[in-house]
Design a protein around this nucleic acid. Sequence first.
DNA 1: CCCCCCCC
Length: 605
Amino acid sequence: MDAIIVTFCCVLLCQGQKKIAANGQGVDRYRVLLSDGKFSHSSALLATQLNGKVTSGELEAFTIIRLNKFMCNTLPNGKQVLILLDLDVIAPGSEVANRIGNPQPYKSPDQSGQPTQNRAEAPSNETVTRQPPNNNRPEAPKSNGFYGAQPAVRKPYSAQKVSKPAEGTPSKVHPIDSLTPYQNRWTIRARVTSKSNIRTWSNSRGEGKLFSMNFLDDSGEIRATAFKSEVDKFYDFIQLNKVYYISKATLKTADKRYSSLANDYEMTFNSDTQVIPCEEEVDLPTIKYNFIPIGKLSETAANNTVDVIGVVRSVGDITKVIAKQSQKEITKREVFLVDEGQVQVRLTLWSSDAENFDGSGNPVLAIKGCRLSDWGGRSLSSLSQSQMIMNPDVPEAHKLRGWYDDIGHTMDYSEFQSDGSSGAGGGYATNWKTFDDVKKQNIGQDKPEYFTTKATIVFLKKENCMYMACPAEGCNKKVVDLANGLYRCEKCSKEYPNYKWRMILTANLADFSENQWVTFFQETAEVVLGRSADEIGQMRESDEAQFEQLFQEASFKSYIFKLRAKMETYNDETRLKTVCVQASPVNFHEYSKKIIEDIEKLLVV
DNA sequence: CCCCCCCC
């Protein structure tokens, strides 16, 4: 299936690419000079989704590329502009290092008046026969990689005849997969697979209302949004699961944070947009997934919207929390999903999703469009747009069912680990140690090691717990008080009229087994003292008694501490240094569960 | 032109 024929190699000849301008969204556009050794073509733009190849240095000058997907726009003056949509680097420019051949500027027939001479060398769709990589869309009816050819030369890409067009319906439809912002004469025929409620917004740029929907056809899917007057025009008219002909909407680059659809673009309805019901019976899919294996979620950008499928391994009870912003009480439920990669992920369901959830019998759960959070390493959270289906009739679900019933139910699963910057310490930590363990097992002696423990602060050292630090962003160096109202940072070699307070707090922690000296830097010190470093610094200067009181109150409190033990050498003396990377309140529900598990393990032996 | 989706 992967028969790739390299038919069109291009060399970037000049000083590589040239940044031309930012488009309306502040995204840079790059122009590339292409050559196939015989002709060169300077009117080629890199699709913005390929910008990463420029910024990463992959597309340096003289790089040989294979162009998998592109489109050609002919301007009114006859000039042909190529938009490069998908390409692979065949040889890096540093290896090629030279121009190949003596390419002459390519002129389109309209421009040059030499109709066919260059044609064979020019990018026509016959020269590109590779199946595009296709983003896991094997059903996509792609026959070539050429999008939006000039009508005089080619029929529009994959145009299909509609058997019995109803009155006023278009004679041909385009696959969703072929839509780009560079071509606006298209009609799609697609099923509405999701439709949001009407939402209003109000911000500094204005206010209004909107709703959004997903369209799906055999080739792919696309999200569309209607604003203000288009809401009035289309909201009641467009119905979930119905099939429509849609044309004349605006296309723009999709933001992956808000959509899991495998499409680089999305639609905005405008005043010209036409939506016509499709009256004939058409066989179009009702849902399409772009599943990310659970283990791969750590390689997916946090805050993206994703599709995930897994076996419900365990289900938590409904709990209630108060939302910080709205102060409203909301219900939630935590569900744990696993797959063959032997990684478990937590999915938090909200409100009615939480209330209606029945995970008995370890069903397979597919969720389309849920938020990937970096809490606790990686976790999932359902959104109002999320579509959850139990035991869907898709191959992935059948495979998971068989695997779980066969061996999956007996397996152990690893969990995502927080990097300390966010996330669930307490109940979800795996490397639990007592301070006695730390000493007896030589934790951190060979390499730095993170561990979690429940412990109590028995002593906080007030002396030298804070210092005046450089106010520059990211520079935490101690400043020298020049006693003239200025503070000098040696690192920045600069004098500032101000400083910020930074904390290095030494504490003695104890659990039932042992005690341990631990260092708390800024963020964790602020957690255990319950005040910001600035407040504490001011307090120390203005109200010594209150400062004392603060330390009294912080003592003998217990937390779930995530600690890092590491050998450090200072003044020729090497010893274990333990730093707190996270201090979390004890979640007694979770912690009790852990203790019960510990006891059960003891009983088994 | 939204893009909030909650809690630990």
